[in-house]
Design a protein around this nucleic acid. Structure first.
Lengths: 218, 218
DNA sequence: AATAATTTTTAGATTAGTCTAAAAATATAT
DNA sequence: ATATATTTTTAGACTAATCTAAAAATTATT
C-alpha cells in the first residue's frame, strides 16, 4: 500500500523532473513540499526501497517506471477533479487547486472511470493542462508563450504556467479566460511588455504576464 | 486542526451513541473501527482534552456539543457524496460506502455547499437515511421495520438497517429498491417469515431481512 | 589544488497512532 | 460477600513521518 505522503513526494519528483534536469535534488523537493531536506532524504530512501524511485546518495532522485505510473495517475485524478469543480460545481479556476489536492488521493478505480465519463472525457483541465488518459498517455498540444508570439498574430488562450490565485484572478479581471482570443499588436522592446487587442479593447501586459500565459495560433 | 483519525473516532462514537445507550463503551468503539481497546482509551483521552468528548475512566464516552457538530457534518458529507455516486456516477447502492468513507474527509465548505446545490438539495441518501442540513438539523421520517407491518398494509421501501453489500445485493436481486412498493400478504408465526406481493410476484422474506428493511405506509 | 560555501546525509529526538501484555476496576455468579 | 470473569486502563514498545544539529560530500572560488 502506498501512503498519502509517499504519493505527494512522488508527485513532487514527477513535476520537478519534467522541468528540464535529469535528476531532482533533495533541496528542490524540500522546497516544493515545504519540508526539510533531511526528511526528503529519508523518504527518498523509502521510495527507492519500494521500487518507485532511483536514488544514489548525493546524486539526486528520479522516478522508476512504477513511480511514474503512480505520478501520472495522480495527475489524471487531480485534473479530472478540477474539471468537475469548475464545470459542475461552479468553482472559479483560482479556487480549485487546494480541493483537488485532497481529491486526487481518493482511491477507487471506478470513481475515476465514471467521473471521466460523466465529464464527457475532457482532454484538458481548466488551466489548459492535458489530462492523461487511463493508460497514462499525455498528448501535448503545441502551445507557445505570449512573450514569443510575433506582432499581428491572432491567438487563442490555452493555458498558464503559474497557477497561483493571484495570477488567475488578474487574468479573470482582464477577461482572459481559456479559449479567449486576441491579437498581438505591439511589442515594447524597452520592458518587453506587449499590447494585445482583446474584445476590441487594447490591453498592455507586462513581460511577467506574457511569460506565464500560453496561446496557440488560430 | 482535527485529524482524519480523530474524525473517524468521533463518527464511531456518534453512530454508536444513537443506538440507545447514554454512553459508549471502549470495546464497542474498538469493534466498530477495528482497533484495540487500548488504542481507543488513548484516543478518547485526546478527544476529551480537545473538547470533543466527555470521558471519565471506566464510565464510557459521549460527544460534547462540539463533537456532535463535527460528527453530523461528516455524516452530511458522507450522505451527499453517496447521492452523487449513485445519481451522477451510476454506482449501485452496495458500492458507495467505501468511497464515501474517503470522500467524507475532504475539507472544503464551498465543495459541500455546491455539491448539495448540484444534487438538488437531496433529503435522503440512497439507503434512505436522512441528510443533515447545513445547520446540522436532521428530520426523521416515521419509518417502520417490515417485521412490524400488519398483514394487508401497502408499503413503500424507505431505508435499510444493514448496509452491507451482501444485504443490498440481495435486495437488488429481488427488485426491492428505495421507493419500491409492496403489500404484506402473510406473516408466518413459526419462523417469522413474511410473504409480500411485489410487482404482482409473491416473495417470502426471512425475519432477518424483515428486520433490516424500513418502509412507510402509503 | 586548497579553501570556502553549499548541499546532502546521518544521528538522535519528537509526535501521532498503534500494539501487546499486565494491572486495575467493574460486573457477574455462586 | 467472595470468587470469577469481563472490561478497561496503563506501561512500554513500535512505525511513519517529521525535525534540529552536526558530519560528510559535493560544488564553487580563488
Amino acid at each position: 500500500m502506498i501512503t498519502l505522503t509517499e504519493e505527494n513526494y512522488i508527485k513532487a519528483i514527477y513535476h520537478l523532473g519534467k522541468q528540464g534536469t535529469k535528476t531532482v535534488s533533495t533541496n528542490a523537493i524540500a522546497r516544493n513540499i515545504e519540508t526539510k531536506a533531511s526528511s526528503v532524504t529519508d523518504m527518498v530512501k523509502k521510495l527507492s526501497d519500494k521500487g518507485y524511485a532511483h536514488y544514489k546518495k548525493y546524486q539526486g532522485v528520479s522516478l522508476t517506471a512504477a513511480g511514474k505510473t503512480i505520478a501520472i495517475n495522480i495527475v489524471r485524478k487531480h485534473r479530472l477533479w478540477e474539471v468537475f469543480l469548475v464545470e459542475k460545481l461552479n468553482f472559479s479556476w483560482d479556487e480549485i487547486h487546494e480541493v483537488a489536492e485532497q481529491l486526487e488521493h481518493i482511491k477507487s478505480k471506478k470513481l475515476i472511470t465514471q467521473l471521466d465519463a460523466f465529464l464527457g472525457y475532457p482532454t484538458h483541465d481548466p488551466h489548459g493542462d492535458p489530462i492523461p488518459d487511463p493508460d497514462g498517455n499525455i498528448k501535448k498540444i503545441d502551445k507557445v508563450l505570449v512573450s514569443e508570439v510575433e506582432v499581428g498574430k491572432l491567438c487563442i488562450c490555452v493555458g498558464v504556467v503559474d497557477t497561483s490565485p493571484e495570477f488567475l484572478k488578474y487574468l479573470d479581471k482582464n477577461n482572459i479566460a481559456l479559449g479567449a482570443s486576441f491579437k498581438v499588436i505591439y511589442k515594447e522592446v524597452f520592458d518587453n511588455s506587449i499590447t494585445i487587442l482583446i474584445n476590441t479593447r487594447e490591453l498592455i501586459i507586462s513581460s511577467t504576464i506574457a511569460n506565464n500565459l500560453f496561446v496557440k495560433y488560430s
